[in-house]
Amino acid sequence: MDNTRRKFLKLAGLTAAAGVGTTLLGSKAMASGGGGHAAPAHGGHAEVAPTGTRYGIVIDTGKFHDNPGLAQKCQDVCHSYHNVPDFGNPKDEIKWIWTDKFANVFPEHSHYRRDERLLSMDIIAMCNHCDNPPYVKACPTQATFKNADGAVMMDFHRCIGCRFCMAACPYGARSFNWRSPRGVDKEGHPFIKKYNQRFPSRMRGVVEKCSLCSWRTKKGKDPLCVEEACKTASDAMIFGDLNDKNSKIAKLLSSKFTIQRKPALGTHPSIFYII
């Protein structure tokens, strides 16, 4: 238990150091996308030339619609593993993965005369692990940074809680610990229902978000939500390296029509949706 925690911290430290290094060396050293800094050649929609690893997920929204409750299961498995507290009110809410309606997940897409099925769908929203995450440069302490595999990470121990990143994220993917997540409510129930000793809980006053389960993907495993979704409906979520053209996910992207959230902002989200 302690060992895993130490490994995690070590990993976070190393990746943080890597983040500092790449900033000093300039954009070329950024493993998973010079696009992180350079202006895209053909407007915001154009993706940049693939370099290195860039993990991403394709979400098949139809499969979640056909299996009601599946998205909830994904959220439960993620939030319980990562010790995400439940304060029971929207003001203090912390969430790594959640659902919302089509009009809210894709506010810039038309929903004029769309069919009822689409409009009523609960669509999964989570961190997009953008290739060009706007808040990585906004953070004044480099507490949030990009991994070599493309995942956007948080160093909870360095964050000063200025919340500049939350203003900078165009997807509302980041949550703040407005109060201590390790506390209890008025009836004495802990906010973290069942404490998972294998993952650190956070302290109040820091920002947190989905880490694309980088502690699992490092070992070649799928993120928890992907694994959970596929238990019920195969390929409801597909995880893999977007830059490897032989990967399942890359082949899927070139054969199926998918959309990203707010592509016009030039953030290059790594989460794709089959509608």
């Binding site: 302490t141 360095r158 820091v206």
Partner: peptide, 13 residues
């Protein structure tokens, strides 16, 4: 600041 005791991180990093 959520963590005012860490304010110097802006200088350290």
């Amino acid at each position: 600041l959520g963590q005012p005791m860490r304010a110097t991180n802006v200088l350290l990093h």
